[in-house]
C-alpha cells in the first residue's frame, strides 16, 4: 500500500482517540485513549519513514514509545494517589478550578 493509506488510517485512529478523551469520564479510559493517539502517530511516522526511504521515522517512533511508557508509569502512579485520597476515578471530580 502506498504510505498515504497508512497516514489516512493514522488520522482516523487519532481522531477516534481524541473523541474518546473528550467523552469518557473514567480516568483510566481517558489514559488509554491518549495511548491510542500516540500509537496512531507512531504509525504515521513509520509510514513517512517508508516514504523517505530512511529510518529516521522509525527512530522517532521508537523514542515515542519509550516516552509513552514513562508517561504511563507516572500517570498511573498519580491516578493511584488521587484514588487513594478521593475514592473516585472520575475525571469530572477534579473541578475545583470552577468559576
Amino acid at each position: 500500500m502506498s504510505p498515504i493509506h497508512y497516514v489516512a488510517l493514522s488520522v482516523i485512529l487519532f481522531v477516534i482517540g481524541g473523541v474518546g478523551v473528550l467523552v469518557r469520564r473514567n480516568a483510566i479510559v481517558v489514559f488509554m485513549c491518549i495511548e491510542l493517539m500516540l500509537n496512531a502517530c507512531n504509525l504515521a511516522f513509520v509510514a513517512f519513514a517508508r516514504m523517505h526511504g530512511n529510518l529516521d521515522g522509525q527512530v522517532i517512533a521508537f523514542f515515542v514509545m519509550v516516552v509513552a511508557a514513562a508517561e504511563v508509569v507516572v500517570g498511573l502512579a498519580i491516578l493511584m494517589a488521587i484514588f487513594r485520597a478521593r475514592r473516585s476515578a472520575s475525571v469530572d471530580d477534579a473541578n475545583l478550578l470552577k468559576y
Partner: peptide
C-alpha cells in the same frame, strides 16, 4: 465569560482540541 471556566478537565480538553 467566566462561565467558560467550568472546572471540568474535559471542557478544557475540548478547547485544546
Amino acid at each position: 465569560v467566566r462561565r467558560l471556566q467550568t472546572g471540568f478537565v474535559r471542557s478544557y480538553a475540548l478547547f485544546m482540541f
